[in-house]
Amino acid sequence: MRVTVFGATGSIGRLVVQRLLDDGHTVTTLVRTPAKLGLTHLRLTLTTGQPSDQTAVRTAVAGADVVISALGPTLKRSATGTPVTEGTKNIVAAMESEKVTRYIGLATPSLTDPKDNPHWKLKVLPVMARLMFPNALIELRGMTAAVTATGLDYTIARITNPTNKPASGRIRSGFLGHDKIGSTMARADIAAFLVSQLTDTRYPRTMPAISN
């Protein structure tokens, strides 16, 4: 498949790109500094720019079968503004213009999915986020709403505590209060789950929680 990846220089995004290439896909990325990605490949196209640049975003999305966004908000308490939300809106607009319908992205269980049942995380995590990372929570809500309010075929994986442990290959996914989902997950396994959604049909227009 032809996959466009946003957030490719991040700790999860870089793993997503490598996984896609290993699996034989053709990858386009939008990166501010191409050298920062540290990858070269015949099936990898590096587009220079950032999500705030509508023209660059549309160039990166053109011709794609799927978009994977590994973008996420900064956790700095001093952060202000909503650059990730605005960038996601640009991605959605580009997808609609280029008639790309499949979107795979990230969020956290601070946000709920209609398939969730009552669960302590749905009560505790939003409160913690408001206290510790208020702007990040605003960003998460904004970037997620930018996708879910559209007709896109989206799957947004909710993660809680990513780690740099080696990939275990053990991935739990489902909905809070219904499936047994933990909190910790290796970033390599998060990347593997995102890539698996290229062909996994279990989670159309939903936000499954995932863990090891």
Rank of each mutant, 00 (worst) to 15 (best):
T55S: 13
G63M: 10
T47D: 06
P114C: 07
S52L: 01
K180T: 11
A192M: 14
N164Y: 04
Q18A: 14
H41M: 07
V84S: 09
Y154F: 03
A186N: 02
V57E: 12
V3Q: 01
G105K: 13
F133M: 12
R202M: 04
G10L: 05
V16Y: 10
R187G: 04
N161Y: 12
A94I: 03
S168H: 05
N90G: 05
G49R: 12
T148K: 10
L106F: 14
W120D: 05
P51A: 06
G63S: 11
G174F: 00
A79S: 14
T101R: 15
R14Q: 15
P134V: 10
P208N: 12
G72A: 14
M207R: 10
P34N: 09
V100K: 12
G7T: 13
A167W: 05
T201F: 07
T206C: 07
F193L: 08
L131N: 09
M143Q: 15
L75W: 15
T45S: 15
A60E: 03
T206S: 12
T80C: 02
G38I: 08
A8Y: 06
T206I: 03
G174C: 00
G87P: 10
D113R: 09
D153C: 06
L106D: 08
T45M: 14
V16G: 04
I91N: 03
M185A: 00
N161H: 11
M207N: 02
G87Y: 01
L111P: 11
